[in-house]
Design a protein around this nucleic acid. Structure first.
Lengths: 230, 230
DNA sequence: CGGGCATTTGAGCAAGATCAAAATGGGTGG
DNA sequence: CCACCCATTTTGATCTTGCTCAAATGCCCG
């Protein structure tokens, strides 16, 4: 997610040497099985994916949308067993590392290791934000919030072009992200479209009026997520 | 949270040497101001507390209940600025460490540092579980889930006595944890009480019928959260 | 052209919210 | 010990947000 501290070349080489290689996944495919016991750490190089959990009867909650640059598997791989599934939204390519890299990393590159913890903490903060939405925001606020947030994240990794970003989520995905029904999502989206707040068509999302959309979302800026200089 | 790997004596001494000391907080007091820029890492020694975020208009979402043994401030202190508040539920005592401990820890005790990341990841997993509840479970399921879960956690740190644990949350806290209204929480609790599933009175919670309560919660066991041997 | 998915629309329903007020239940100062 | 205060719990009544069910429409792809 965007702002990282500068990583030294020696660190980079070190990481690079341990790469297991690249993987590709088709849209819709499971990147990590729910409940499986994977032994890897991934970085998403390209494409979109999401983390989710399900209830026995099939209800699904999307926990997190994953964009290029995000690290995958801190929760899953550091913990035994993976408590969630990961599915590709678009064709996806990722870079895998052996799980055993972690300890070596901690021994040989404490700086990088700290970054890893930072990343884990940051991930939790994102989840916190979503929890606030799902628990306490109205449907309209939730949708507005999600769209603003996704737009910002996508733009920050260079996905914005001509005032819009790719938007590979179906309305069902949005529903499962926000804890709402598909039908209702549809109606809320139309409301936002009619109000000129968003432009959502042909798989792309543009924001018509950032300021208003934010206001609708009952959202205001978080201090930028920068790793503190210790 | 219960299951830790064995920590060596040298590690313990190291940690102990860095302790800034103990703090106490009264019930209801803010342990960390929302939005403040604290410089500490805490461990909760005694009592209950909770993490929360608020919306401009006062709506509150409780993110996490904090029990003795839990680490506080991974999200807050590793990130710049604290995006959430922490409030004491009961009188509380905590142990503080300087934020600068982190890097030293990473340099000198990679094993411990890995534990720290593990803790951060584990924290996120808890949040994930709550998110699944709030997003996709019915009110009844959510309450059942929360009570089972709190009971297990509290019991695992030795708070259970005679089949019950202390329960310092008001119904308003439960409501803000689960994204429901106080009135509705009240009704659901009565339903569970009448069904003999729980015993909740005089500030203590007992579970009448674990199996059924779990079933009601649409909950089933997670693999135990044990740090993997790398 | 036909099947499958996603989106859209309509109608009725219900879980849970809101509003209001009464009943409890400690704690506190007199 | 009592009177009072304030927070919490409880109850009742009504309303609304968002859900469910059902069907139509549009679209992509083989």
């Amino acid at each position: 997610m965007a702002d990282f501290r500068r990583v030294s070349t020696s660190e980079l080489t070190w990481i690079d040497a341990r790469k297991l290689g690249q993987w590709r996944c088709e849209a819709g495919a499971a990147v990590v099985e729910e409940g499986s016991d994977h032994k890897r750490l991934y970085t998403l190089l390209e494409g979109w994916a999401f983390r989710f959990r399900m209830l026995p009867d099939g209800r699904r909650q999307i926990l997190n949308i994953i964009l290029p640059g995000d690290v995958l598997g801190l929760q899953a791989e550091l913990l035994a067993g993976s408590p969630h599934g990961v599915e590709a939204l678009t064709d996806v390519s990722l870079c895998a590392f052996p799980r055993t890299m972690a300890l070596a990393l901690y021994r040989e590159h404490p700086e990088l290791a700290l970054d890893l913890t930072w990343l884990a903490a940051h991930g939790e903060r994102l989840t916190d934000e979503v929890l606030l939405s799902v628990g306490r925001r109205s449907a309209l606020e939730r949708v507005a919030m999600l769209l603003v947030h996704l737009y910002k994240r996508a733009a920050s990794v260079g996905l914005a072009e001509g005032g819009s970003i790719p938007f590979p989520l179906t309305q069902a995905h949005v529903a499962d992200t926000l804890g709402l029904s598909v039908v209702h999502i549809n109606r809320v989206l139309q409301r936002l479209r009619r109000g000129g707040l968003i432009v959502l068509k042909e798989g792309r999302l543009g924001i018509g009026d950032f300021r208003s959309l934010r206001r609708v979302a009952a959202y205001w800026d978080q201090p930028a997520p920068v790793r503190p200089l210790l």
